[in-house]
Each structure stands twice: as structure tokens, then as C-alpha cells.
Amino acid sequence: MIITTENLIYKYGVGTPFEKTALDNVSVSIREGDYVGLIGQTGSGKSTLISHFNAILKPTSGKVIVDGEDLWQDNKHKRIQTRFKVGLVFQYPEYQLFEDTVYNDIAFGPKNMGLSAEEIDSRIMKSIEFVGLDKKFLQKSPFELSGGQKRRVAIAGVMAMSPKVLILDEPAAGLDPKGRDEILARIREYHSETKSTVLLVSHSMEDIAQNAKSIIVMNRAKCIMHASVQQVFENAGMLEKIGLDIPQITRVFISLHNKGYNVSSNIYTVQDAAKEIMRCLKEGGLYD
């Protein structure tokens, strides 16, 4: 297990009339090398949970264990080291850019790690390749770029630290469908190439089904489920009750299945759907 939380509780505004429990007894474990999807309604505690994984927030009670180390038991230096192990890309990360060139901005994280200039340079080259940016952007000011390009620079800035775990909070929010697919494909590539653990927070069940291997479901400050994609999406009724959904394509196949067609109802991506239809047509002898 690369990240484990034990009975994690986090309260905002303790001691004021505005006290609110944002995380209520959350115990989750994330396997090394997994691609985890984190879903839940707005305000269910997703962002609060991921902010605990790299010691940005301090638990009100409970433990956060990263790579075998209890984050809040030791000194501050360890926690800063944790931030290099668990790279966190916040929502709308393009607003964090500040350097005069894209190159320097991506270098910020690796520089804080205390790496040599050559190492930093090679990491920058690798990370812009991962996010699919041309090298000609490196000497430009980040403020000249388009929104989508800025976001890639920001993600590259975290990837350049080569974290063992990469956490992305809605990395595709506000992008057009093409930019969306592109960025998610890049992250998938990063995951398979570096064998690192990835945690994706998203409101899109399609994106989650397309990418994740397991899913954590949050509802009202609690983690109510952590299981495989299939096990989670089998509970369409439960998901709907907490304001979530199943992928559209799954909905289509469940209806087909219920109408008596000989198709599986466990279809979560369009690619699988295409295969399933082909199989069905072949079996029916209508197509060969």
C-alpha cells in the first residue's frame, strides 16, 4: 500500500459556529501502481481527502501513512519530502504559474528537491514530452499560452518531480472535448510508462470508466466504497441516490439487456461497447 489513511477525521473551523466535518472516519488504502478514480458529489470531501495525502492539511484526528511513514509523527522535513513523493495537481492548476519562462516554471519543483542542473533539465524534457507540449514553448512566458497549454505546463511542473503517486483534481475541467481526451490520454501514458500510482478526481463517470482500475466513492464526508470499476458501477441505484451516475454507455447496455438482447450489462467504455456489439452481431449470424 502506497497511501493508507486510518480513521481520518478532518473538521473545518473547530470551535466556531461554522464547524463542519469534511472527512468522517475515512479509512482507505491505495495500492502501489493502481489507477484510482475518486468520485463523489461536490462538497463530499474529495478535495479535502487528497489534500491530506501530501500533508497540505493536518488531520483533526486519525493517521495518514504514505510509503510506510506516518506523516504527522515525525518532523516537518519529512512532510516536505512527502510532497515530492505524492505530486498533487490542484483544480485549475494554470493559476499557479509564476515564472518568466515555461522552462523555469517546470523547474520550480525539481529545484526545491535540490536536484542538479542536468537532472532538472532532463526531467523538464521528459515531462513536457509526457504532457505533449512542443519544445519551442520552453522559452515562452507561461502567460502567453492558451488555457489548455497553461494547464499542461502546470501538470508537467508536478510530473517533473517524478512523484511515486500523481494525484490530479479534475485535470480536464473546463477543457473542450479534444483537449480533455488528449490530457487524459497523456496521463494514462504517464501511468503505464512510469508505473507510478495515479489518482484521478473527476465528475465524469465516462472519464473514470475509461481510465481507472479501481474507484473510491465519497459521500457526505465518508468513503462509502472502494472497489473495482465493475463492482462500483454495478450499483447504479446507490450511485444515483448519492447524486452520481453510471457511464451513459452502461445505461444503454443495461436497457438493451433488459429488453432481452443478448448483451452484457457490464459495459463501461465505448470501445468495449463496440466489441460487444460486434460479438453479438456475429453470434446472431448477421455479420461476418
Binding site: S51, N54, I56, I80, R83, F84, G87, L88, V89, F90, P93, Y95, Q96, F108, G109, N112, M113, G157, V158, M161
Partner: peptide, 12 residues
């Protein structure tokens, strides 16, 4: 938000 984002990149 910005402070947290920079902290996540190891700013001290």
C-alpha cells in the same frame, strides 16, 4: 489555494 499549490511543489 495558490499557497497550497506551491507547497505541493515543495515550496518552503
Amino acid at each position: 489555494k495558490i499557497t497550497n499549490a506551491q507547497k505541493a511543489r515543495g515550496a518552503d
